[in-house]
């Protein structure tokens, strides 16, 4: 995973609420066996609408996406995170995220920033003309207009994003704990292993 410390750049002033992952990437894009190239399918349906932010040259290649409440609800498809990453998005800001999406985003080096609706509204305004600065170390979002919004983040997620760490590798460092747990399970709940019919 790539390290993420600071992100500075323009932001898509998207703002839509309840964006489900079918909107982020429709099902027919899920037939790939690769993680690559999904940016082409990102927001495919919305991109058919004239004037959508994703095809506005003003915002092309923006590293930040600003959305409304409950971003990433619905399907667990990690393809949504892969599509955003492929689009070049490194930070998504919204008043709230679905649990599954925020986990998927984090595992792909995308930072999800939860901010109150008023802060989002303000940043949507700024995004139309100016870049936005995100500092993960300090947990702040700032603009050249002296806006400064602090956000919370799970310390473990922060640690992994800053270090670009591989979570599987970290867990496997705990192999002996897992071995011990499994050993106890085999004694206490031997019935847990499925019967092979």
């Amino acid at each position: 995973m790539e390290k993420l410390t600071e992100v500075e750049g323009r932001a898509y002033p998207f703002g839509m609420k309840n964006v489900d992952t079918d909107i982020v990437i429709p099902a027919h894009w899920l037939k790939t066996i690769s993680r690559e190239g999904l940016g082409r399918g990102a927001f495919e349906v919305l991109r058919k609408e004239p004037g959508n932010v994703f095809d506005d040259p003003e915002y092309a290649g923006s590293p930040i996406l600003i959305a409304g409440d409950n971003f990433g609800c619905g399907s667990s498809r990690e393809h949504a995170a892969w599509a955003l990453a492929d689009l070049g998005v490194k930070v998504v800001m919204a008043p709230s995220f679905s649990d599954i999406f925020s986990g998927n985003a984090f595992k792909n080096g995308i930072l999800t920033v939860v901010l109150p609706q008023e802060a989002i509204d303000r940043l949507m305004e700024v995004a139309k003309t100016d870049p936005i600065h995100v500092n993960l170390e300090e947990q702040t979002v700032t603009t050249r207009f002296q806006d400064r919004f602090r956000f919370e983040i799970d310390p473990f997620r922060k640690h992994c994003l800053l270090g670009g760490l591989d979570e599987i590798g970290l867990t496997l460092d705990n192999r002996s704990e897992i071995d011990r747990f499994e050993g106890r399970l085999a004694v206490e709940k031997p019935w847990l292993v499925p019967t092979v019919a």
């Binding site: 498809r77 990690e78 599954i100 986990g103 998927n104 792909n108 979570e167 867990t171 897992i178």
Partner: peptide, 18 residues
């Protein structure tokens, strides 16, 4: 509960999730 593909890989490799 549903998980993403990175978590699928994590479970396949470690039989655990954080």
């Amino acid at each position: 509960f549903g998980i993403g593909t990175s978590e699928v890989e994590h479970v396949l490799a470690t039989q655990t999730l954080l």
